[in-house]
């Protein structure tokens, strides 16, 4: 691991240790925050008991579905928009101001449209994640050097070959940024939706635990959300690093 990596690890460890100490010495009241060790312990207990598997499964389906749909829709729409300059000019303001709109306000409407099931949550995930992927796809396709495309034509590559050998490698860095952002937005959208109005999922579990004063369970679930967010982000980051390294060789 690099020096930066170790420092990061040390900082996180020091932070957790400080929090633990503050909680143990009751400087932070147990009602406000339970010690990190207790959170880990409670989370392990919840996982072993298996009570939260339904919630985890529901959230996983929603986030996974939204993420997948956002990638497919985002890449297709991004490619279509990039190929038609006029469309691009027209939708540019929409894309630029999309994230200025607090999309969760549409959630009640989506519930009315789809009913109280997993579909409105997937819909809100797709709504918040797709534009990031569209923007990333446009940016990635813009970065494909013209000269390489011309070379592809000279060599009579098929469309599939051109896509695989020329377009994809050049667009990759931007696409990866899109992937990371799309995951973050899908995850945030789904958890927030569950939190506000839902009958299941991890977000709902946190809200429910909070309202029924089950503080330890609430913190255990928050920890789970934290671990998933940081874990997936880290995994995508590592994958990106490996692919980019291979490209440089």
């Amino acid at each position: 691991m690099t020096r930066e990596g170790w420092t990061r690890l040390g900082l996180v460890a020091a932070g957790i240790a400080a929090l633990e100490a503050l909680c143990r010495t009751k400087v932070i009241k147990p009602l406000t925050l339970v010690p990190p060790s207790r959170m880990v312990h409670d989370l392990a207990g919840l996982l072993i008991a298996g009570d939260i598997f339904d919630d985890i499964g529901q959230t996983a389906i929603e986030v996974g579905g939204a993420f997948f749909l956002a990638i497919v829709l985002g890449v297709l729409m991004g490619a279509a928009i990039q190929a038609t300059p006029r469309l691009r000019r027209a939708v540019a303001p929409v894309l630029a101001s999309w994230y200025a709109v607090p999309s969760f306000v549409f959630y009640p409407l989506l519930v009315a449209l789809f009913g109280l099931s997993t579909s409105p949550l997937i819909a809100i995930g797709v709504l918040s994640a797709t534009p990031a992927m569209v923007v990333a796809t446009i940016g990635g396709l813009d970065r494909v050097p013209r000269v390489l495309l011309r070379a592809a034509r000279i060599h009579r590559l098929t469309a599939a070959q051109t896509l695989w050998l020329i377009t994809l490698p050049s667009a990759l860095p931007s696409l990866f940024t899109g992937l990371k952002l799309s995951f973050a937005y899908a995850f945030i959208g789904v958890i927030a939706g569950e939190f506000i109005l839902s009958g299941g999922g991890i977000g709902y579990g946190i809200a429910y635990a909070y309202e029924s004063f089950e503080t330890p369970k609430m913190y255990a679930l928050m920890l789970l959300v934290l671990i998933v967010a940081v874990g997936v982000n880290g995994a995508l980051h590592a994958w990106e690093g490996r692919l980019l390294q291979r490209r440089q060789r």
Binding site: T32, A184, F195, I206, M218, V225
Partner: peptide, 28 residues
């Protein structure tokens, strides 16, 4: 150096659904 240490941490924080922190915010 601090920048290189902090950047991925901040990016991860950005990914967290911050709504879930609301009970903590209320308590604090």
């Amino acid at each position: 150096f601090s920048g290189d240490v902090a950047e991925p941490m901040l990016a991860s924080l950005y990914t967290i659904p911050k709504v879930t922190l609301y009970p903590l915010m209320l308590l604090v």
